[in-house]
Simulated assay, not measured.
Amino acid sequence: MQVDFYSKNILIVDDNKVNILVLEGLLEDEGYTSILSATSALQAYDILKKNNIDMILLDVMMPQIDGIEACRTIRQTPNYNHIPIIMITADISDETLRKSFEAGANDYLNKPVNMTNLKVRIESQFMNAHKDALILNQNRLLAVNETVQMLAHQWRQPLSIISTITMDIAVAYEFDELTAEHLDRSLNNINNAVQELSKTLDEFRQISNIEESTSLNNINDTVNKSIKLIEDRFESNHINLETDLQHQQDILYFPNELVKILISIYTNSIEAFKKTPHEIKKFIKISTKQNKDYTYIEAVDNAGGIDKDLINRIFDPYVSTKDEKNAVGLGLYNAFNILKESMHASIKVTSQNSQTTVTIKIPNTK
């Protein structure tokens, strides 16, 4: 895999300008051409806002805001949390390394920095980031594919209406019963069905867009949008929908990505209900809540639960909760990766007493 890393933007953060000059010299000698620097965490945050940074070399020991705290802040900011961070420190104690990795660091370098170590670790992190980006894009495309399948389902009813009306017009014409009033009413009904098709297409086109950055949104609005796009499938499968959406403050996340993930979760529930006895009262309960640190979305169904052996592997690729031969088992795998990589969020699935609960946990970034 030939990838040019030498033109990527590397940010050096160190309160000692001599250390910055040394690192800049080493990187330039190796062929890197775009190097930025900051002498404090606050200055680094400002550079991140104004530039597309691909790698951060972050000193641990800095006044005011140290490197570990700066690393933690970057990891909690959705627009930057994907950037590889290599900590640079003279303190290689177990405690410092533990705190660095817990804060979200990808790797570390000892001071004084050795050129060979610097080169190998930077290239390794760039390669990992490149692979992660490919996987994330693949996950997003697979999520779009699920959305297209949902669109096809949404179109069936209005297309069926149009087909029925045109057949009715043809029969009325054949028996010389097609009056002007009959034709006008039929054309009006066809137009209404076409408008519904157009509206649905616009909604799905919007959520299919791949977002480049997070935006400030309300989780309840996103949940309601996801429900609207699939509520006809709840009705056609006789599933009772219950909601408990508590008041939310707006937070930063990817709303279109979240809509697609929620639709995938609902679809899993709908498919699971097809294997349950017809006499049970089917339900899906969707709730939201928020505390000072996190926002939660919870979806509960009574579709029979998930086997213990399967639930431990449910986020693995190609593991499916469905029995169909064409079930590829990528829905929850995609959800897990998109939430983790794009929003620094998490997803958990539990199952007990024929009920399955899916919980999404998103940090309250504003």
Rank of each mutant, 00 (worst) to 15 (best):
A327V: 03
A345C: 07
I12V: 10
A327K: 04
E211R: 01
Q43S: 14
E341Q: 13
L201P: 00
L183G: 05
A105V: 02
N189R: 08
D307C: 07
K111D: 02
I35L: 15
Q138S: 12
G304N: 09
Q246V: 03
A103Y: 06
V60H: 03
K119R: 14
E146W: 00
E231D: 15
T77Y: 10
L258S: 06
N188V: 01
E177C: 08
L36P: 01
M55C: 05
M61Y: 03
D46T: 14
K199R: 15
Q138G: 08
T359A: 06
G25C: 05
I311K: 09
L23Y: 06
K325T: 07
A152G: 08
K292Y: 10
K131M: 13
Q43V: 10
H130C: 10
T39R: 05
Q355K: 14
I190P: 00
N128V: 11
T166P: 02
K275F: 07
I338F: 03
T116F: 06
D132Q: 15
T295D: 11
I165N: 07
Q195L: 13
R156I: 10
I65F: 04
K199F: 14
N192C: 05
F204I: 12
D91W: 07
D309Y: 06
S40L: 12
N334E: 11
F126W: 08
S269V: 03
S160W: 04
S351A: 06
Y296W: 12
D54A: 12
F5E: 09
H247I: 13
D107N: 12
S236H: 01
L229D: 07
M127K: 15
T164G: 03
H247G: 02
Q206M: 10
L109C: 02
T116Y: 08
F315V: 09
D46Q: 14
N16D: 14
Q2S: 08
L258W: 09
T200A: 11
R121W: 05
T288S: 12
L36T: 09
S264N: 11
D184N: 12
T350K: 09
L245V: 09
Y266W: 05
D107W: 01
R75I: 11
I338C: 03
T222C: 10
G331N: 12
T276R: 15
L241Q: 06
S215C: 07
N117L: 04
S160P: 02
I122V: 12
Y32C: 11
I83A: 04
D15P: 02
S198N: 15
E235G: 00
T359P: 01
E146V: 00
N188I: 01
L118K: 02
A44G: 07
G331S: 15
I65K: 05
A38L: 11
L151V: 02
N137I: 03
T96L: 03
K99V: 02
I219G: 09
I230V: 11
I219D: 08
K131P: 00
I286V: 15
N79G: 05
R233T: 01
A90W: 03
D91S: 06
Y333I: 00
G304K: 10
K8W: 02
V113C: 04
H153P: 00
F175S: 01
H153I: 09
V18D: 10
L201G: 01
T214C: 12
I74F: 03
L141V: 11
I362G: 08
W155R: 04
R98V: 04
I161V: 14
N52L: 10
N217S: 13
N364D: 04
I306T: 08
G67Y: 02
S93Y: 09
T357P: 03
D168Y: 06
K281P: 00
T276P: 01
D221Q: 14
D4V: 06
S160N: 13
